[in-house]
Structure formats: C-alpha cells, structure tokens
Amino acid sequence: MPAGIVGVLTIGQSPRTDVTPSISAIVGPDVTIVERGGLDSLTEENLQLIAPDASDTTYISRLRNGKSVRIGKKKLLPYLQNELSQLEKETDIVLMLCTGDFPMLETTKPIIYPDRVLNHTVSAILASGSLGLIIPLVEQREQLEKKWEQSNLQLLVEVASPYEKSDVAGAAHALKEQGADIIVLDCMGYDERHKTEAVRVSGLPVLLPRTLVARIISEYISS
C-alpha cells in the first residue's frame, strides 16, 4: 500500500502530542495517524474509576492536559477495548502506545505491541550479558523483571519516570556502572532527548521504543 492510516492507542488520553510527532517524522507526511485513548471517555474528576489497587498491575500514562496518571490494568481494560474497537474501523494497523502486556485485547486489524518488539530485538542483539532497564515506576519493578526474564541475561533496573521530574541520565549512568551492555527505555513516554542523554552519559546502545516501533510501521505500510 502506498500510504496508510495508522491507529495510535494510548492507555491514557489522546491526543498524545508528546509522542505522535516522533512517529509522524518516521512514517512520513503521507500517512494519516488517528488517535484514541483508553481514558478518553473519562474526565479528571472521575479518574478514580481506573485508580490501581494493591492487587492490580500499575501503569503510568499522560492525560491530554499534560498531567500524568497512574492506572490499574484490570480497571482500564474495558475502556481500552471499547476505544480499540472503534479505532480499528478507521485504520489499517494499530500501534499500542504502551510497553505493557495486553494479550487479552481483541482486534480484527494488525496490532503492534512494543513489548514484543523490544523483547525480540534485545534477544537478537544480546545473546548473553547484562540488560539495563530504565522504568517509570518502582511499583513496576517486579512485573517488568518477570516480563524480561531470560536465562541468558542479567537484569539491571533503575527507575526514572518520563512523565515527572526525574533523572534519566543518572539512571543510565548507574546502569553503566553496574555493567549493563545495552539499555532499554521501557516506556513509550521516553523521548529522543531521554535517549540522547542516556547515550551521552553511558556510552551504551540505547533502545527507544517509540522510534523503534515507528520504523516497523513505516516498513509495513510502505510494502
């Protein structure tokens, strides 16, 4: 197809003006991007409906007003599925704008999950050694360690949120000092500036999910 319509599904609210420009720059001006968010139907006053509890997986995302929000996965899923069902009617392919695990979503269109792309990319690049992860929340540490667990890799984890004031460069430096061979910025909220700083202080290869998956989408829609 010479051009296409790409759906971008965020777990927060759309539009994601902090992310979609990065994707647009890679897929090109001929590609139309349609955005929807799992929290689009909620207002700031009723966000307690998706607040995480102790038994749930916690994610963090962005509201359209620029504020960050913590989200309980189980509570999010019905809202997210509803938005996806509408989005797929308008698009050729959907990008899940989260590096979390969402195998339970139902769709009739191709959908790209960044967590799968990242896992396979790291496996292809790093046969053995130390994988450095920078993650947004300390509450996600145990969950993400399980997601990345591979018998041939040692996991090193530092926390620095892309949505709140935090020290991504310091986290990258700490991973370098601990012996990381490669760093993954494990959230779609990390941007090109975060990657530049991480590379500068660590001197290591750094994978940025938003640009990695955008290049895969570009390859798909130009075929």
Rank of each mutant, 00 (worst) to 15 (best):
D30P: 01
S85G: 07
E158H: 05
L49C: 08
P103W: 11
L49E: 15
I111H: 02
S68F: 12
T91A: 01
P136A: 09
S130H: 13
L42N: 08
S166R: 09
T58I: 12
V159N: 13
T99W: 06
P78N: 13
K165N: 15
Y79I: 11
S61K: 09
P29L: 02
G170E: 09
D101S: 12
L84P: 00
A124L: 12
V34H: 14
L97R: 01
L133P: 01
S130N: 15
Q154P: 03
K73C: 02
D115C: 09
Y163K: 06
L42A: 11
P103R: 06
K73H: 12
R116S: 11
T99H: 11
L155V: 11
A51G: 10
S68C: 07
E164R: 15
S55T: 12
K146I: 08
S68D: 11
V122R: 09
A124Q: 09
E88I: 11
L153V: 04
L49P: 05
N82A: 14
R62P: 02
V138F: 08
L47N: 07
W148A: 01
E106W: 01
G132Y: 00
P52S: 07
D92R: 10
E35I: 10
G129E: 11
D167T: 05
P52G: 06
E88D: 07
E139D: 15
A54E: 15
E44Q: 14
S128T: 05
L84F: 10
N65P: 02
Q81H: 10
E158P: 04
I135V: 15
I33K: 10
I93E: 02
F102R: 11
L63P: 01
V159I: 15
T108C: 03
S85Y: 02
G170K: 06
L42T: 09
E149Q: 13
C98W: 04
A51D: 09
L133K: 04
K74P: 02
L126M: 13
G28R: 05
K75A: 08
N119K: 15
G66C: 13
A124H: 10
P110A: 03
L144T: 03
M96T: 07
E35W: 00
S68K: 11
S161W: 12
E90W: 00
S123G: 08
S123C: 07
D101P: 04
G100E: 03
M104I: 06
V168G: 02
P52N: 12
T58Q: 14
V34R: 13
L84E: 05
L118V: 10
N82D: 14
R64H: 11
F102Q: 06
K75Q: 10
S68Y: 13
N46L: 05
E149G: 01
I71D: 03
L84Y: 08
N119T: 06
G38A: 13
D92V: 12
G28P: 11
D53C: 05
R62N: 04
L126H: 01
Y59S: 07
N119S: 10
L144H: 03
T91G: 00
Y59G: 02
A160F: 02
E106R: 08
T57V: 15
V31L: 04
P136E: 05
L87H: 01
L153I: 07
L80S: 05
L126N: 04
P162Q: 13
E164V: 13
E90G: 00
Q150D: 15
S123D: 13
Y79Q: 05
A169W: 09
K73I: 01
L49S: 14
N152E: 14
A54D: 15
T57H: 10
G132H: 04
Q48G: 15
L155R: 10
D40A: 05
L80F: 00
